[in-house]
Every structure is written in structure tokens, then in C-alpha cells.
């Protein structure tokens, strides 16, 4: 269980405070809220990418997937296996899982291509696959359906349903049908600005 208490993020020009929240384990929770309500700031706090005040417990082994995919200048497969390499894990042992996920996301024919030659949607799916390949306990997805076509959203929905058995998934999205298909829980985020 992830518990967030008295969360406050201070930027040079503004301060955002958040209501206390608890996230269920092995569930998919959607965070909703209008533009500028601090959803990305909230996810980045959970993933410890930014400094915050307050207490967040249970956020170990967490990975954050940004709205704009940031792929490295290498092949799709090399991007996907990057988290395995830096953990000194044997990539061969993970190939079955990689091929399984790549098949689900329709990325198999693209594995040897330069990641920067892919379409926006393909880049997005590659970045999501890279985020899950090493099996984090908590997966934070920020606008995962951006740039994805309808078929890809369906593929992602099926994959996330499978993944929630192994990890806690927190998603920021404005896509109503995607939320309806997947949600176990929803929270409305009202970041308070000071």
C-alpha cells in the first residue's frame, strides 16, 4: 500500500499541496483532475524524481513513464533491455518475457529498428515496455494513451490487466473509455496552489 500524507512540492514560482491519498496494491488507480492540477508533479513525487515535503510510504521499486517518450539513440530492443543491462541481469533470461510483451503491443517486427525512426505511438509503446521489463512493483503511467491509435489502446489495456497481478499501477489519463475499461479505483486530484 502506498500512503501519501501532507505532500507539498515547492517550485520557485509556486507551491502545490496535495490531499492525503492511499493507493491499493495490485490495483489500477486512475488519477483525474483538470490541466494544471499537479498530476505530473504528484507522479514525479511518488517516483522520487522531484523534491517534496511530507511523507510517502510504500513507494519503493517504482518507475515513472513520462507523457513524452524519451528513447535512447539505439535499437528498440536495446532500449527495452537497457534497465536489465544496468542491473547486470542476464538479458537472455528475459527474452521470453520481452517477446511476449512485444507481441502483445505489436512491436515484434520493430525490435531491431532504430528507436528514433519509429512513429510517436510506437515510441510510446516501446517506452512503456522498457518501463515494465524489469518488473517494478509500482508502475506510474503519465498519459499513456497519448499518440496511441484505438488498436494500440486496446493492446495496452489487455497488457495492463495482465500486469496488475504483479504490480501496482497508477495512471494519469484524460481518456474516459480507457479509464472505464481498466479502473479499480479513481481519485480526483485537486492540487492546491499557494
Amino acid at each position: 500500500m502506498i500512503e501519501v500524507q501532507n505532500l507539498k512540492v515547492v517550485y520557485p514560482e509556486l507551491t502545490i499541496t496535495f490531499d492525503d491519498v492511499t493507493f491499493k496494491e495490485n490495483a489500477i488507480t486512475f488519477i483525474k483532475g483538470p490541466n494544471g492540477s499537479g498530476k505530473t508533479t504528484f507522479l514525479k513525487s511518488l517516483s522520487k524524481l522531484i523534491r517534496y515535503e511530507g511523507t510517502i510510504t510504500g513507494n519503493q521499486d517504482v518507475t515513472y513513464n513520462s507523457p513524452k517518450p524519451v528513447l535512447f539513440h539505439r535499437t528498440v530492443l536495446e532500449n527495452i533491455t537497457y534497465p536489465l543491462h544496468i542491473r547486470n541481469l542476464n538479458v537472455e533470461l528475459y527474452m521470453e518475457a520481452i517477446n511476449h510483451f512485444a507481441e502483445k503491443l505489436n512491436l515484434t517486427p520493430l525490435l531491431q529498428k532504430n528507436a528514433h525512426k519509429l512513429s510517436d505511438g510506437e515510441q510510446k509503446k516501446t517506452s512503456i515496455l522498457r518501463s515494465i521489463v524489469f518488473g517494478p512493483k509500482i508502475l506510474l503511467l503519465d498519459e499513456p494513451t497519448t499518440s496511441l491509435d484505438v488498436e494500440s489502446i486496446v493492446e495496452l489495456t489487455i497488457l495492463l490487466k495482465e500486469l496488475k497481478k504483479q504490480m501496482t499501477i497508477i495512471i494519469v489519463s484524460h481518456d474516459r473509455s480507457f479509464i472505464e475499461d481498466l479502473h479499480d479505483d479513481q481519485i480526483e486530484l485537486g492540487g492546491n496552489y499557494v
Binding site: V62, Y64, S66, V70, F72, Y82, R87
Partner: peptide, 19 residues
């Protein structure tokens, strides 16, 4: 952007420098 992505994927300082 690259450093933020590498951090969230678990890279340490040395990994980030190579990247």
C-alpha cells in the same frame, strides 16, 4: 529528459554518465 528517464529506470551515476 535523458537523466530523468535513466533515473526512473534505475541507473546509477556511472550508468548515467555513460548514457
Amino acid at each position: 529528459e535523458v537523466l530523468e528517464t535513466a533515473t526512473t529506470l534505475g541507473a546509477n551515476k556511472k550508468d548515467k554518465m555513460y548514457l
